[in-house]
């Protein structure tokens, strides 16, 4: 059987919020190493990769590798029934066709369980090549969410340009043009407030704002976000999930017009 108990149930609620705008359904692949999920959005322009390590769970048991196909809309409805303080347990019998979510209140005076049907998803996983990125930019996740929200008003595409001076986000459209320049933080007193840029070579790529805005639904997971870029390869937007794992979004660039 499979059983994973997470003391900080709010993390799973936030993971749900981070996935459900982009994906309708996905397979949760469980092994003794932990839980992994990889899926493309319907338009095959972006890919989401989630990893939750077994060590991050209060209790984790996976007798046999298991792939649970889930409708994320339904799963989101169930997880909305959990309070932020609840302990969440995911359980399933081997080759089961349902999964059960158990929510325990901190003082155990309320225990809920929800059983959901599983789906047969023939999700083939894509191979993601290891890449030594030309530029990586770490910045406050709230800052990145703000930039995506503000600039997407100006156009459907955003140009992200990284040079040794800093990183510039630009968008242009009918109403005009917006540019936001972030300089590398001088002093890094509060780690998560810093803007840290590692640049091997300058890169400038164009991306569709609507996907970037979907990615920022993961903002509540981590105070900082890391963008990785190389010429002519997908952008990576990564949010760490406490000490248990990460969610990574890959976005194909647009052809520079």
């Amino acid at each position: 059987m499979f059983e994973a108990r997470l003391l900080q149930g709010s993390l799973l609620k936030k993971v749900m919020e981070a996935l459900k705008e982009l994906l309708n359904e996905a397979a949760w692949d469980c092994s003794d190493a932990g839980i992994q999920l990889q899926a493309m959005d319907n338009s095959h322009v972006s890919l989401v990769s989630l990893n939750l390590r077994a060590e991050g769970f209060d209790k984790y048991r996976c007798d046999r590798n298991l792939s649970m196909g889930m409708n994320l809309g339904s799963m989101s409805k169930i997880l909305k029934c959990a309070s932020n303080e609840d302990i969440i347990t995911i359980k399933a019998q081997d080759n089961a066709d349902t999964v059960t979510f158990v929510f325990e209140s901190p003082d155990q005076d309320k225990v809920s369980d929800y059983e959901m049907k599983l789906m047969n998803l023939d999700q083939e996983h894509l191979g993601i090549p290891e890449t030594d990125y030309a530029c990586t930019i770490r910045l406050p996740s709230s800052e990145f969410a703000r930039i995506c929200r503000d600039l997407s008003q100006f156009g459907e595409s955003m140009v992200i340009s990284c040079t040794k001076e800093g990183v510039r986000f630009s968008a242009t459209g009918d109403i005009g043009t917006g540019n936001i320049k972030l300089a590398q933080s001088a002093k890094v007193d509060k780690e998560e407030e810093a803007v840290v840029i590692e640049m091997q070579e300058p890169v400038s790529l164009t991306f569709a704002c609507r996907y970037l805005n979907s990615f920022t639904k993961a903002t509540s997971l981590s105070k900082s976000v890391q963008l990785s870029m190389s010429p002519e390869v997908p952008l990576v937007v990564e949010y760490k999930i406490e000490d248990i794992g990460h969610v990574r979004y890959y976005l194909a660039p647009k052809i520079e017009d």
Binding site: M40, V45, E124, L126, G127, A208, Y250, I255
Partner: peptide, 14 residues
């Protein structure tokens, strides 16, 4: 969308 490339043109199917 015009000019939008697909993720599948970068990552290989197994």
């Amino acid at each position: 969308q015009q000019g939008q490339r697909l993720i599948t043109s970068f990552f290989s199917k197994p």
